[in-house]
Nucleic acid binder design. Structure first.
Length: 916
RNA sequence: GCGGGGGUGUCCGAGCGGUCAAAGGGGCUAGCUUGAGGGGCUAGUGGCUUAGUGCCUUCGCGAGUUCGAAUCUCGUUCCCCGCACCA
């Protein structure tokens, strides 16, 4: 069978027949996968997700459910835009990269160059890649309904997103405020990890310090800290004597801080004006005041203060900071530590104890001091209770988190001061990256408690597969707070009430499965008519069709259809995707659904699969080990890929793509085709056995797929059944019964649909196997005794082999002794709980005397077995087979008709064996 | 640091209170197949023992719960992933 030709043939047939465009009839299943981003080609890792979803969708379809599995394309955001920018600028690495990408699909160099030139327009990039991705998906045989495709740049989609944001604002979750970001000084743009040089290796985070304003001279000495709760224990301030400090006007106040710290303030949304510069030693010896108490704090010199870090001013808490304690001691400055935290296992001045314990004598013991700080901070954080901390006294340290900072800020005594976790970051463009506080940003406030509660409720009613990921969702829901939802740059939808902002690309992709239900109907309409009233009616059922028609100018019938579509298909029954989407996209998905839709339209289930690696390594451009998706149909075959993906690893395990693995599966696939095509005719006693095996397997096979145990499904339905079929032929089976064969093809069609369609057609199956009905397990076909007999034969073969190995010679003849009836009786009664005494009441057993007592112990360990007559019959039936296997005569008798040690050893399910 | 998840035999990997010396592959070993093979088939692959058996040791490390633990609890250690304006 030519796999390529067969795959092409059936993909075309499916399309011609519109096989996967469902009708609104009967029970429905709506399954979605996040749409791909279209800045480049997809690789074989991406398709794992779509393959598993497709498998599931195909199974649902075989159950006779109206199954909708649509697909669209994501173009929002900055990457596509930057690609076009860089192509326009003629950057070599981008041109080379995209030339390669295009080359995957366009072998004609001239045409490829023309495509490349067109990429100066972002839309051309998006159009090209959405087309080729769609083609890739088709070549893998995904049962997608393509009639509903769209991109997130389509006018209708933008109307939908605008509506969504209006409703979010109505719900009161849109807020505005400032936001700290990494910022490129050249591009004047926020930059993410991807834009920063070595951003994947360095910590590109921003840390929010609390800058505390200590009244000082005519203004404030500003000290930054991560532990504002220790402020009540501050005894003095530290400055670096040899560094440069400034006096400056900041937001109308007078501040004193390091020159380096001052330089960052301008970016942090402060109005600044330098007044005077001077060396730090001019500050030493002066006095500041605690902002929370009347206490006077001397300003002292210290060389451990880094003037380039934060404000270059640190407040000193000798009772809890070993560094401060040691520095003060070394200075010989007479201050008493002021304890503010009580920690079990420590006295009043923990810092002193830790230092003594580690024998730290001078500030020179850097490592020791670090260790001491680490130990103490840990103990104080987890076990400490604030003892003397104004309104916070009595609160455990780990519970106060940002409370102290918030309290100080609200009183104007402190403010945020942002510090990059790694200093001196550089943008890919070469310019310096600074922390910038952007004012007037729009946020979605996922921190809203009522909203969180709703989202938790939404999660609670959902199935999460694997269930173990629920904890991650719960954590993500708790952790999520305000998220900036609009940017100044990028493709997408303008914020409807402030059009200079573009809605950020994860925020425009939360409830879009709903849009699949409208896309094909509104595509040809004037997008301007898609006013909010249309979506209010179609998606929320608000108002009437007539009112919406009037408000929009759209036909009444159209509005009715929209609502009908939505009502029929919503909610999403399954959203399947890869684990990395969990903490972002999927969590937003839950939040937004929980907020905008009534409970009946909340999502039903989410399933997650792990990623794919190649030969144990992540695929990446830099490693040059990426296999483009287009290679699957060219070099491997869609069904081979699907089989490998489904059977190679559990959904929640990383799957490793190896050439050897592929070859193994390829052999099995070809062997399957050969077996299935194996001509033959006639019946054999093995037919019933094979039928029984099939229906036994079938009994809970559907649950494997329902439960996303695709690996188990593939193992049983494909590999397991193949073994059975091989055994069937080995044991003298003539031909797989036709009806059984057809059922097998149906069962395997979600997994390897093309091959199954072809084989189905050759077996004169009616219509498409993809649209057939999943076979019902037939209890009448299941014959446990028959299977048990065959198991017995198998075990006996093993045992004979074992013995032959030990005796190490060619057998002249093998005798098989089936255990005497009384052993079967005892065995069964022991399984029912009978004890030896009761059993001995039976004369037939008592007659065996000691042998019965010995067997009693033994029988407890034996698995269930059929009766002696069945076992005798099974072995008799297998005689010619066994003789062929071992190349010698086999004799089967009941142990009753024999004597000797071997015959006496016979047990239920385990005949005695004598090799002569 | 915070949050989530893991450490299983030569390797990958299933198992998640008894049916576990532990599925399934890969590798390795042996036999068969011999219109050549690196292909196909069959068997073996912790130790000792044995005519198909039995025993011992083993599932990161240490302790515990239990008649019984790879599986549950606690501690410990190592590893992976996420931490936001990035799709």
């Amino acid at each position: 069978m030519d796999l390529h030709a067969v795959e092409k043939k059936w993909q075309q047939r499916w399309q011609e027949a519109q096989a996967f465009v469902p009708l609104r009839k009967g029970k429905k299943v709506f399954v979605t996968v996040p749409y791909p981003y279209t800045s480049g080609p997809l690789h074989i890792g991406h398709a794992r997700t779509y393959t598993l979803a497709d498998l599931w969708a195909r199974y649902q379809r075989l159950q006779g459910k109206a199954t909708l599995f649509p697909m669209a394309f994501h173009i929002s955001g900055t990457p596509i835009l930057s690609v076009a920018d860089r192509i326009r600028e003629g950057r070599k690495e981008t041109l080379d990269l995209y030339r390669d990408y295009i080359g995957i699909y366009e072998p004609d160099q001239k045409k490829a160059e023309a495509v490349l030139r067109s990429f100066t327009e972002p839309k051309a990039v998006a159009d090209f890649f959405s087309q080729v991705i769609a083609r890739d998906f088709q070549s893998l045989g995904f049962s997608i309904d393509w009639t509903r495709s769209f991109t997130t740049g389509d006018p209708a989609y933008r109307k939908f997103i605008a509506w969504q944001f209006l409703r979010l604002r109505d719900a009161g979750v849109i807020t505005r405020g400032s936001h700290a970001v990494q910022f490129c000084t050249r591009d004047q743009n926020a930059v993410g990890e991807d834009d920063i040089r070595d951003g994947d290796l360095l910590d590109t985070g921003i840390e929010a310090f609390t800058a505390v304003k200590f009244p000082f001279r005519d203004g404030f000495l500003v000290a930054a800290t991560l532990r504002p709760e220790t402020l009540f224990g501050a005894t003095n301030l530290w400055i670096r004597p040899d560094a440069t400090y400034v006096k400056a006007r900041v937001d109308g106040e007078i501040w004193y801080l390091s020159a380096a710290g001052f330089a960052t303030l301008g970016d942090q949304h402060h109005t600044v004006k330098e007044i005077e510069r001077f060396p730090g030693k001019k500050l030493a010896g002066s006095e500041a005041q605690s902002p929370v108490e009347k206490r006077i704090l001397p300003v002292l010199p210290a060389d451990f203060v880094d003037p380039a870090f934060a404000t270059g001013v640190v407040f000193s808490v000798p009772a809890h900071a070993p560094e401060d304690y040691v520095a003060l001691r070394n200075l010989g400055f007479p201050v008493e530590p002021i304890p503010v935290i009580t920690v079990p296992g420590y006295g009043p001045v923990p810092a002193k104890e830790v230092c003594d314990q580690l024998h730290i004598s001078s500030a020179g013991d850097r490592d020791q001091l670090k260790e001491a700080t680490r130990m103490l901070y840990k103990a104080e954080f987890y076990q400490g209770v604030l003892a003397r901390a104004g309104p916070f006294s009595g609160t455990p340290v780990k519970e106060i988190k940002g409370q102290v900072a918030a309290w100080l800020k609200s009183r104007g005594k402190a403010l945020d001061f942002f510090v990059p976790k790694t200093p001196d970051l550089v943008c890919r463009c070469g310019a310096r990256v600074v922390v910038k506080v952007l004012p007037d940003q729009w946020f979605i406030n996922y921190g809203d408690p009522a909203w969180k509660a709703k989202t938790r409720a939404c999660l609670k009613q959902m199935a999460i597969i694997p269930e173990g990921s629920r904890a991650s969702f719960e954590a993500a829901i708790e952790w999520l707070h305000e998220r900036a939802c609009a940017r100044r740059r990028g493709l997408g939808t303008a914020l409807p009430w402030d059009e200079q902002w573009t809605i950020e690309s994860l925020s425009d992709s939360t409830i879009y499965p709903a849009f699949y239900l409208l896309a094909h109907l509104v595509r040809d309409q004037d997008a301007e008519k898609l006013v909010p009233a249309v979506f209010d009616f179609a998606l929320l059922g608000k108002g009437t069709a007539a009112a919406a028609a009037k408000a929009s100018g759209l036909p009444l019938k159209l509005l009715q259809s929209l609502r009908k579509e939505f009502s029929f298909w919503y909610p999403v029954d399954l959203r399947h995707t890869a684990v990395p989407h969990l903490t972002n996209h999927l969590t937003f998905y839950l939040f937004t659904h929980a907020l905008l839709f009534p409970e009946q339209h909340w999502p039903k289930a989410i399933s997650l699969n792990e990623l794919l690696v190649r030969d144990g390594h992540k695929m990446s451009k830099s490693k040059g080990n990426v296999i483009p998706l287009a290679d699957v149909s060219r070099q491997y075959s869609a069904d081979l890929y699907r089989l490998y993906i489904a059977s190679g690893a559990d959904m929640s395990a990383v799957i490793d793509w190896t050439q050897e693995g592929i070859e193994t599966v390829r052999k099995r696939l070809l062997a399957f085709i050969e077996l299935a095509e194996r001509a033959g005719s006639g019946k054999s006693p093995m037919d019933a056995w094979l039928r029984s095996r099939f229906h036994t397997m079938l009994q809970d096979l559907g649950q494997d797929i329902e439960g996303f145990r695709f690996r188990s499904y593939a193992q049983r339905a494909f590999f397991g059944m193949m073994n059975d079929v091989a055994h069937f032929f080995r044991r003298g089976g003539k031909a797989i019964p036709g009806d059984l064969l057809k059922d097998w093809f149906i069962v395997l069609s979600p997994l390897i649909p093309h091959v199954c369609e072809e084989l189905w057609e050759r077996q004169d199956g009616k219509g498409l196997v993809s649209l057939a009905r999943w076979p019902r397990p037939d209890p009448k076909a299941v014959d446990p005794a028959l299977e048990a007999g065959e198991d017995l034969v198998g075990r006996t073969v093993q045992d004979i082999r074992e013995i032959l190995k030990l005796v190490d010679r060619k057998p002249g003849k093998v005798h098989l002794y089936v255990a005497p009836d009384w052993k079967y009786v005892m065995h069964r009664r022991i399984a029912d709980g009978a004890d030896l005494k009761t059993l001995m009441a039976d004369p037939a057993i008592r007659a065996q005397g000691k042998a019965a007592a010995v067997f009693f112990e033994r029988a407890k360990k034996l698995p269930a077995a059929a009766g002696p007559a069945q076992e005798l019959a099974a072995l008799h039936g297998a005689r010619t087979f066994l003789e062929r296997e071992f190349g010698c005569p086999i004799e089967v008798v009941s142990a009753l008709q024999a004597t000797g040690a071997r015959a006496a050893k016979a047990e239920p399910g385990k005949p005695g064996i004598e090799v002569v």
